[in-house]
Design a protein around this nucleic acid. Structure first.
Lengths: 221, 221
DNA sequence: GTCTATAACCAGATAGAC
DNA sequence: GTCTATCTGGTTATAGAC
């Protein structure tokens, strides 16, 4: 028996050792950076954790910024793939909202690093490369667009972009706040119950039909 | 002429040069750490910015952790002093809520570093001293207690601690999410309008009297 | 693609004159 | 309390054998 922690597959077919190493580095770096932040995560930490020497890490990613860009890009892709699409099935608003919230809650629960990375690395502006800053904003913008489109579809706000923006900001800030809470209480999840009540009230406040608090089925037939 | 940036008062009476230097260091460190985070802020950066040599900084605070603890302690004191006390004046729920939200919005607007420091430094667990970790949790706990007490007073939830906890978590997560948003849009403020609607709806959902959406004055007399 | 070894540098922290 | 000068160790990054 070699070691208790086979972080990477040394005996894998030589064919794709490179791709496997690359993934191992990204896994380790994502884990460490989401926990300690970009600045506090060193190449030696990543090297020690994933078992590859620093030079291999540099061979794959070129620089610390390069690792960061790759980690963030992968996190963004994975999170956006897990988030529900804008086309939510459901006849009425409440039905669509419940489907939407269930998907969102699961996506944020299954990809806990997604937002944390954005948070811990958002303050990179210091010595980060232009590519790194661009990727941070790309990530953030993608989430904003997703939130606006989704909530617009759920509540039927295609002709009321301001209301859609408000609901999107509200939802994203709650999600970010939950990500923050998670590094004090690791088990914290997005509380969809209160969020559901809040979104329905906000929509009702904007006069969106089918969101009145009394009578869960909407307007009486 | 000496320099265009007199960051500290070199010609001040010798009497309290120490106290002034201490404050200057804390100001600079707070500014930098809230922008770049703890790990990315170096002693040399602080030294260059405030004009005092590294050894003076160490004389005042002993270590980088020491600076951090002092910065966070001062931020916590200032923020909690600016936040409204639990005893909110106002006859009915809506009145108290409006006073509360106005105070909170102003406190978070006038102390933009307060929460950012907590965010950027929350991930210090890596090589931080026990004192530093303790201060982070002290800060966070103080905010949690404040939120619970305040919202309990506003909505009259003394006998319903679970509802008070839920409203407190909701409010704090929105505030944290806003602090996060602020490092993408520096002008972002806590949006008390939607938060007001949401809190009223949550309270109504819990059956708190005086929070029904229709009829802003509460129950008809 | 992966390794050993190391260059060049900057971080946190200290010594000791004044 | 403040300064100049410096020590030590870790940091990013590279050279070059295999």
């Amino acid at each position: 028996m070699s070691s208790a922690k086979p972080a990477r597959d040394v005996d894998a077919p030589v064919k794709d050792r490179g791709a496997r190493s690359r993934d191992a580095i990204l896994d380790t770096a994502g884990e460490l950076m989401s926990r300690y932040g970009y600045a506090a995560t060193s190449i030696s930490m990543i090297s020690a954790e994933c078992g590859l020497p620093p030079s291999s890490i540099y061979w794959h990613f070129g620089s610390k910024d390069g690792i960061y860009v790759a980690v963030l890009e992968r996190a963004r892709t994975a999170l956006l793939a897990a988030l529900p699409p804008a086309a939510i099935p459901g006849a009425d608003v409440v039905q669509r909202l419940d489907v939407f919230l269930a998907h969102v809650e699961e996506a944020f629960r299954r990809h806990p690093h997604g937002l944390k990375l954005l948070l811990g690395l958002g303050m990179v502006q210091q010595d980060a490369s232009a590519a790194a800053v661009a990727e941070v904003h790309h990530y953030r913008d993608a989430l904003v667009v997703w939130a606006r489109d989704s909530l617009s579809a759920v509540f039927g706000l295609h002709d009321r972009p301001q209301a859609a923006d408000e609901l999107a900001r509200f939802t994203l800030r709650m999600a970010s706040g939950t990500a923050v809470a998670r590094w004090f209480e690791p088990g914290a999840v997005l509380e969809t119950g209160p969020l559901r009540v809040a979104l329905l009230a906000l929509a009702a406040h904007h006069g969106v039909p089918g969101t009145r608090p009394s009578g869960e089925g909407g307007s009486p037939g």
